[in-house]
Nucleic acid binder design. Structure first.
Length: 561
RNA sequence: GCGCCCGUAGCUCAGCUGGAUAGAGUACCUGACUACGAAUCAGGCGGUCGCACGUUCGAAUCGUGCCGGGCGCGCCA
């Protein structure tokens, strides 16, 4: 509908250029906006104000000319020129209800588009260190990252979801020594407890599992604990596998899946890290100073050069990161989106600088990043900071246990990633009108309920039977709902383009409100069968869009609640 | 001190590339059920968009400078 009106306006502009009213070309793309106020029509454009100067007349006079030049059509019922020169379009009723038949025809595909044209995009998210259970920040990353995958997939991209495992380096060493200490019966209060050791309860479970020679099955391998308290390497291997299994279980409970788990250690095993260092060396991007090897990252916008290899040997963390991202590039991902916590912001410049220094023709804005800000958890009016299990932080599992999967996913993805998020457990738990996720799910359940009732009353009252009866939808609430439904495809493509899943959440809240308003004002099952069929068709279209929208967020659309 | 994010109604937040009287929800006040789910709806109250300049037909939105909060500024990851 929007496209159709846009092309009508473009034709009007062309004729104005042809008759000399407008100088220059008709190369302006008209901006059409949905109005906030119904008295301003359904769609409005500011075109006359933008072009007034070029036409040498007042915006309102030009608006008159544009309206007069519009080709004959059945789309627009009425136009109006208002305010400083807005042109308001009142869409005809049949066009308004067009969305309903579009939705019933497209079904689960409604809202999908092909802007990605099947190109590959990799989305990396969560990427937690295997040193403890996932925390609420990882949960936010999982909710947003998975929603991004679904959005990109819905807009025609071939999505590859990936989890990067930092299973090498100092923190893994700490983990092994912590487990070893617990296995020897030490506690964090003992003087011989390892410095920077992990203090959470889960380390005790881990140590006990190791001593009991348990077997674990993590994402891609099985292993059995050695049970030898002095074999630090065996402890490390087992601890990583055990925690991976733990994280996998959390992600599964959150309904998040990955296509691939990429291990940092594999970059050392394959020689990719050495290869990247050698290439940066031979490209002259490095120098030695103070016994360390430095990257000239200032050549690529960094505020200072960065150490790559420490004086006592060993690479700093971003070197394998560069190798990892070069590997992504070599795998053919011309587009990569990394979703991570904003506390890792400083690594972006370093990784990109390293990639630029390879001279492999990688674009300087590659990869793209979506950074989310911190999450704080509130309960009973106070901030929750500790989890018994993890010790120093609240876990994703805690949230799921307290609030349920749907509410947790919704709340963690319903706010702009750039804003700090307060997760109110009491709100997420309340099954009431103040809880947006229940409000939306309730609309879905309500529609399913009336459909069951309609079928019971008359076996022929199926949603598809309503299609020929859309002309009975004349009530303002029905037309408003229909117009709102028609905005879904724009909302999806906009959210995918901006990488902002919360657009979908906001839309769904509005859509549910529009539905409830319609539902409350009229009897769905009227004595007049024609009217009933029209309303049932509209309700089914609303149900379909709510289900599609919730699915983009990974939230279920229940038939009963 | 430097970099990034945020500052909009009592509270939680929308406001995309600058557009019409700044919007929702919640809280508070009024109304609507012998239920097609009241887990809902209708109406009301509530804001000098942190402050100040600037850019222009027009600024919550763009620019600069302040103020306030968060995060990051390691030869840790």
């Amino acid at each position: 509908m929007k496209e159709a009106l846009t092309s009508l306006i473009e034709k009007a502009l062309q004729s104005l250029v042809a008759d000399g009213t407008l100088s220059g070309g008709a190369d302006v793309i008209p901006q059409l906006d949905h109005t906030k106020d119904p008295s301003h029509g359904d769609l409005a454009t500011n075109l006359a104000m933008v072009l007034a100067k070029r036409a040498g007349m007042s915006p309102r006079a030009l608006a008159d000319k544009i309206v007069a030049a519009l080709p004959e059509n059945t789309l627009v019922a009425k136009t109006d020129i208002a305010g400083p020169g807005f042109i308001n379009f009142f869409i005809s009723q049949t066009t308004n209800t067009q969305a309903v038949s579009d939705i019933l025809n497209a079904g689960v595909k409604y809202g999908c588009s092909d802007t990605g044209q099947g190109q590959k995009v990799q989305v990396e998210f969560v990427s937690a260190n295997p040193t403890g259970p996932l925390h609420v920040g990882h949960g936010r990353g999982a909710a947003i990252g998975d929603a991004l995958c679904r959005l990109l997939s819905a807009t025609g991209w071939e999505v590859h979801a990936e989890f990067y495992y930092n299973d090498a380096g100092q923190q893994i060493n700490n983990l092994a020594r912590s487990v070893q200490a617990r296995a020897k019966g030490l506690t964090p209060d003992d003087t011989s407890w390892p410095e920077d050791g992990y203090r959470g309860e889960y380390i005790v479970d881990l140590a006990n599992a190791y001593l009991a020679r348990e077997s674990v099955h993590a994402a891609d391998r099985d292993m059995t604990a050695g049970g030898d308290v002095n074999d630090l390497e065996a402890i490390q291997d087992f601890a990583v596998a055990w925690l991976r299994r733990e994280q996998d279980a959390d992600l599964k409970a959150f309904a998040v899946q990955f296509d691939e788990y990429f291990l940092e250690s594999s970059l050392y095993d394959s020689g990719a890290v050495e290869q990247v260092v050698a290439q940066l060396n031979s490209n002259g991007r490095t120098y030695e100073e103070g016994g360390a090897l430095w990257l000239r990252s200032t050549e690529f916008g960094d505020d200072k050069d960065r150490v790559m290899r420490k004086r006592e040997g060993g690479y700093t963390y971003f070197v394998p990161d560069v190798a990892y991202h070069f590997n992504k590039w070599q795998r053919g991902f011309k587009r990569v989106v990394n979703e991570q916590g904003a506390d890792h912001h400083s690594t972006i410049t370093r990784v990109r600088a390293g990639l630029q220094g390879l001279d492999e023709g990688i674009p300087d804005g590659w990869p793209e990043y979506v950074l989310h800000q911190m999450v704080t958890v509130m309960r009973d009016g106070a901030e929750v900071k500790l989890s018994k299990r993890a010790g120093s932080y609240v876990t994703l599992r805690d949230l799921i246990d307290w609030a349920g999967r749907d509410a947790t996913r919704f709340f963690l993805s319903a706010r702009a990633a750039t804003s700090q998020l307060t997760f109110d457990i009491d709100l997420a738990l309340s099954q009431s009108n103040e809880n947006p996720v229940y409000y939306i799910q309730y609309a879905h359940a309500r529609i399913c309920s009336v459909q069951r009732r309609a079928l019971a009353a008359n076996p022929h009252w199926r949603p598809a039977d309503g299609l020929p009866h859309l002309s009975t939808l004349t009530e303002p609430e029905a037309l408003a709902l229909s117009l709102m439904l028609g905005r879904f495809p724009d909302t999806v493509s906009g959210a995918a383009k901006r990488l902002e899943p919360h657009d979908i959440a906001n839309y769904l809240r509005e859509l549910a409100a529009s539905f409830h308003s319609f539902y409350n004002a009229y009897k769905m099952l009227d004595d007049n069968i024609e009217i009933s069929l029209g309303r049932l068709a509209l309700a089914e279209a609303a149900r379909q869009v709510i289900a599609n929208g919730l699915d983009l967020l990974g939230v279920s659309a229940p038939e009963t609640m």
